[in-house]
Structure formats: C-alpha cells, structure tokens
Design a protein around this nucleic acid. Structure first.
Lengths: 144, 144
DNA sequence: GTGCCTTCTTTCTAAAAGAGAGTAACCCGC
DNA sequence: GCGGGTTACTCTCTTTTAGAAAGAAGGCAC
C-alpha cells in the first residue's frame, strides 16, 4: 500500500483485474449465470424440453439473436442439451441437463424471493422517489 | 391465434411485451437483481457495512459510474441504506437492509453452486469446443 | 419455378458500459 | 487567501453490446 493517490491505486486495481478473472474462475461462471436471458431460458426450460420457437414464444421480448447466443452459452457450459431432428422443417429441441436442473431449482428460489418481496420493493421505490423529489425541491429553494 | 405467419406472430408478441412487463412486476425485479454488479455489490456488503471507496476496492473492475448507478438502484429498491456523515472528507456508508441480507443469503447459495460445479462446467466447455472444432473441420472437408 | 417453414446468421443502428477527466465541499498548511 | 489533498460522485467521450430486421440453408407443397 504505502502512500499513493487514489488514481494510482485504481490503476493498480485495473492491472490486477485480468489476473483476478482468470484466477477466480467461479466469478467468471457467476457472471454468466447472473444474466437476464440465461435466467429466463433456464426457467422456461423448467417446464420440460422445448423447441427453439417455443422458447422464443415463452420468453417475451427476447430477440432471435440473443436467444441463439444464450442457448449456445448454456449448451457449452453443459446446462442444456441440443438435439437436432432432421425433419421436414428442421426441429431443434433444448432440454435441461441434471446440472441445469439443479441451477433451475436455485434460480426458482430467487424468483420466489422476488415475487414474495415485490410489494415491499415497490413501497421502498415510492418512498425513495418521494424523498428524491423533496431534496430536489429543497435544492432549488436554496439556489433561489 | 388462428392462421398467421411467424412474422405476424412475432410482431404481436412484441406489442404484448410492454403490457407483460408492467403486469408481471416480479419479472422486472428479477431482471434487476440478475445483474452482475448488483450481485457483486450485495455479496461485498455481506461482510458488513462499507464505504463507497471500500466497495470500489472490494469489487475489482467496477467503474465509479457503474458503482454509483448500481448503489442507487439497490438503495431505491430498499436493499441497502446510504448514510452520509458530514465529516472532513464526506463519508458515505452503505449497509444491507434485512431485505438485502435475505437476498444475499440466496445469492450466496448461487455462488456456492457455481464454485461446486465449476469443474464440471470446465469439462463441458472443453468437450463442446472439441466437438465444435471437429464439425468445423468436417464442414471444410465437405466443401473441398 | 414461387412461396413458405424453421433455425439460425448477418448487418445495421440504438442503447448501455467503461475510461478518464472534472466537480463540489471541506480542511490544512503556509 | 491560495494551492493541495481528501471523498464521492458527475460529465463526456469511446467502445462494446443488445436489439430489430432482413437474409440464408434446406426441403416440401403447389
């Protein structure tokens, strides 16, 4: 440490960051699974195997690009399996692996938490916004 | 439903999306907490209250902008408290609320899951990459 | 042939993240 | 009073990423 400016410290931290990411491998995985689309896809597959188009329908707002990208990532990580059936229009089924299902169980709990505490969060947001408005008004009064 | 093209269906889904987001409020919250920086900040605050600069040091790779933004979001949601002490250099402490701590416990489990299954995921990735390379070679052979 | 199906892929643009300098408020030494 | 140092932001600019839309492979129906 010794004596150093805040800017110098920050620069050093940045330099250490790459090393940190490759060293702390689980952080890398954590980053990937704490991703909106990954959560939604795994949750959607919880009901059972689904085709690409089923997933697109089950997850409102996902673009085809992001769905494909997300599926590739979680397939690579061994969370889902991808089975291609060479039928008249090609058919691709995605299903959770055992590993994917264990993650789904966990994420399901997070989803439950969100549903349980939604009301409280909404109240907190309203209170925060009201406070914000007050301080903004106070700041205006101080200036004038 | 009835008969409609895939494009028409997709357009309809898009139109329904805004309604869905405001209706299914917990999804909105879920989106926010399945965010890299939110996860990391809440995990860092698990050890106890921290100052802004402590957090910046504890979370490698976070920019000041993202740290401020993330803290504002989770403060608004009632997950952390922000206490300003008007000292010589102003001092701002962030601490988890009870709600924030309950989320931290859950996210901690996800973190544990990631650490436990990291090895398996790494093997899956290697296997996937090997398969990918093979199919790429096969595709090249087919063309030539 | 044309059109249409699914599952992607590519291209282009708009939104978000990241890097870095700047700001406000305050105190201290000189 | 003035420069310098502190913390906690805030603003601006660049790069990265997400999203929207059109295209492509492969095949069947007409």
């Amino acid at each position: 440490m010794a004596t150093s400016t805040a800017a110098e410290r920050r620069a050093e931290e940045r330099r250490a960051y790459d090393a940190f990411l490759s060293e702390c491998a689980s952080h890398n995985l954590l980053d990937q699974i704490s991703n909106k689309w990954v959560t939604l896809v795994i949750s959607a597959l919880g009901e059972g195997p689904k085709r690409y188009s089923d997933l697109a329908r089950a997850i409102p707002g996902v673009s085809q690009k992001m769905l494909t990208q997300t599926l590739r990532i979680i397939e690579r990580d061994g969370l889902v399996t991808r089975t291609v059936t060479a039928a008249v229009p090609v058919r691709v089924d995605y299903a959770l692996t055992d590993l994917g299902d264990s993650l789904r169980a966990l994420l399901g709990k997070v989803k439950c938490w969100a549903e349980e505490h939604m009301d409280f969060v909404y109240l907190a947001r309203e209170a925060y916004d009201a406070r914000e408005e007050q301080t903004a008004v106070a700041a205006l009064n101080r200036k004038s």
